[in-house]
Every structure is written in C-alpha cells, then in structure tokens.
C-alpha cells in the first residue's frame, strides 16, 4: 500500500468524524458500544413489541381461559411459568399483558406529549399574560403526585383500558408542556421566527412549521422517558383494582388479590408478573436515557 493512499485514507477518516458521514448501521454499532445499557434497553423494548404483536403465535393458550383442573400448577413444560388461582397460564397472560402495557404506555405518553408540545410551544410563543396564566394553570396540575391525580380521575370515569389511558395522559400534559416551553422560549428569540412573523405568516403556521420542529429533541426525550412511568402507573392502578379490569390480561392485575394470598404456597404467581413490569420499565428507562444522551448534547457527558 502506498503512502499516498494511506494519507488519503487518514484524511477520509478525519473527514468522517468531522462530518459524521458514517452509515446508519455503523452509528448504531457505535452507539451500542458507547452505551451498552441503552442497547440493552432497546433490546428489551423490541422484545416487548415482539411479544405484543405476536402474542397468539408465541403461546397457544388463551389468556382468559379458566381451567379449574390446573389451578396453581408450578412451572413445568406445559405451563412455562405455572398457572394462577384460576388455572390460567401465567406465561400466556404475561405475553398478552405486554399488549396492554404497551397500549397504555405508548398511547398515554404520545398523546400527552403531543398535547403538551402544542400547549408548551404556544405558551412560549405568545408569552405575556397568556404565558403567565397558563404556567400557573400547569402549576396547579403539577401540585399532585401523578398517581394521586390519576386515581382521582379514575374515581370519576371508572376503570378500563381507555379510562386508564386518559387518567395517565392528563397528568403528563403539564409535565411535558413545561419542558417544551422552556426550550421553545430560547427558540422564539432566534431571528428566523421574527423573519417568519415579518413575512406575515399566521400564528398557527409559525408555531407548527417553525417552532415545533425545533423542540423535537425534548419532545422525543419526554416521550421515551415517560413510557416506563406510564406502564408503572398503569400497573399500580390495576393492582389497586382501579385500573384495567378482569379478565383483560394486565401485569398489575395479575399481582392483585390471589398473588399475595398464595405468595407462600405458589410464589410463581406474584414473582413473574412483577419481573415483567420491572424488566419492561427498566428497558424503557435505559432506552430513554440513551435517547436523551444522544439528542441532548449538554447532558451527554454527565450521565
């Protein structure tokens, strides 16, 4: 190999690091090497999505099938993780439970973050009295711990998957709006927003076309960071008997009632659903951390 090609290779490599010209796959590989925890989190998220999508392929049992002949059977080859007090296969209910968890977690965070995004950007854009009043209004919502507000909302509308999603979405809106607003405040001061206004664009157009795309980083961070929390809240609500209702398979619900009662004689009943919740939230949090580290350069070196 001649010295000339060596030099040009070196130059190319330098340029690559400067211009970040690597392929997507290489970037992913690099990211996984730099953030092993984030990669693990992503793997868990993928596993959950896979379980949710192909639940009926993964297991041949019906999650709602009650069989009194197979009550509290310990884990074996027929029932991988044993059965519960109604003879339902726990593995099957965990696999189908991923559907419920993902449905609630993702819907609540995406819808909540989206409404928070619009409100936060609008609040920053209009400023003045509107901003002040809006912020005080958000403060009021923030004065309640998430689960307390969610419980209060559930007490009005009752349980069930759709109500639980609503109860988790509402407390999330102000949390997202606040973060987005503080980011949008800085963007409002950048000249292109003035330029857009000078060109006579409408408020809606400036907000949606010029401001929203520039707060995408905190928006995505909020979504990924919240999915885990939403899954946890859903599990807590279901455990208290005020979330997802029987017979829908949900992890929190599986820990309710029988789980404690049979804890000693059938420890697989309380152990496995809890492991599923912990692993899912663990995965989403690690994934969220990695997303934040990648999208927010200011925090990158600290974490």
């Amino acid at each position: 190999m001649s010295a000339a090609t060596d030099a040009s290779n070196l130059q190319d490599a330098d340029l690559d690091t400067v211009l970040d010209r690597r392929s997507a796959w290489e970037k992913t590989k690099n990211l996984a090497k730099k953030q092993p925890l984030g990669a693990f989190g992503f793997a868990v998220v993928l596993l959950m999505v896979f379980m949710a999508l192909f639940a009926d392929v993964i297991t041949s049992y019906d999650p709602e099938d009650i069989s009194f002949g197979d009550m509290l059977v310990s884990p074996n080859f027929d029932f991988l993780l044993g059965t519960d007090q109604l003879g339902r296969d726990i593995f099957t209910r965990i696999v189908y439970g991923a559907r419920t968890a993902l449905l609630v977690g993702i819907t609540a965070s995406v819808v909540g973050a989206f409404i928070g995004l619009i409100l936060g950007v609008a609040s920053a854009y209009f400023g003045g009295t509107f901003d002040l009043l809006f912020q005080r209004f958000m403060d009021v919502f923030m004065a309640f711990p998430l689960i307390i507000l969610a419980l209060a909302i559930v007490s009005i509308f009752g349980g069930g998957v759709d109500k639980v999603i609503l109860a988790i979405t509402i407390p999330f809106i102000p949390r997202c709006a606040r973060v987005v607003r503080s980011n949008a405040l800085a963007i409002r001061e950048i000249p292109y927003v003035d330029a857009a206004r000078a060109m006579g664009f409408s408020h809606t157009r400036i907000i949606i076309r010029h401001m929203v795309p520039n707060v995408m980083a905190p928006f995505l961070i909020m979504i990924t960071a919240f999915v885990g929390q939403a899954i946890l809240t859903e599990a807590s609500l279901s455990y208290l008997g005020m979330g997802v209702q029987e017979p829908t398979p949900a992890w929190g619900l599986m820990l309710q009632g029988g789980a404690e009662e049979y804890a000693e004689s059938a420890p697989w009943v309380p152990i496995f659903p809890g492991v599923a919740i912990t692993l899912a939230v663990f995965g989403f949090n690690l994934f969220g951390d990695a997303v934040r580290d990648t999208l927010d350069p200011r925090l990158r070196s600290q974490q």
Binding site: L37, Y239, L255, A259, E264, P273, G274, I277, V281
Partner: peptide, 25 residues
C-alpha cells in the same frame, strides 16, 4: 447505575410482596 435504574423500574407494591414473601420463607 443498574441498581438505581432498577429501583425506578420496580413497582413498590411488588417489592413489598417480595419482601413479605422473603420474610415468610
């Protein structure tokens, strides 16, 4: 870090059940 992220991920009611189970056993 794993220990602390697990702490945020683990539902406190499940940890409670496991503690009771552990105490019993």
């Amino acid at each position: 870090r794993s220990f602390s992220i697990a702490g945020i991920a683990m539902p406190s009611f499940w940890l409670g059940i496991i503690i009771i189970l552990g105490l019993l056993i």
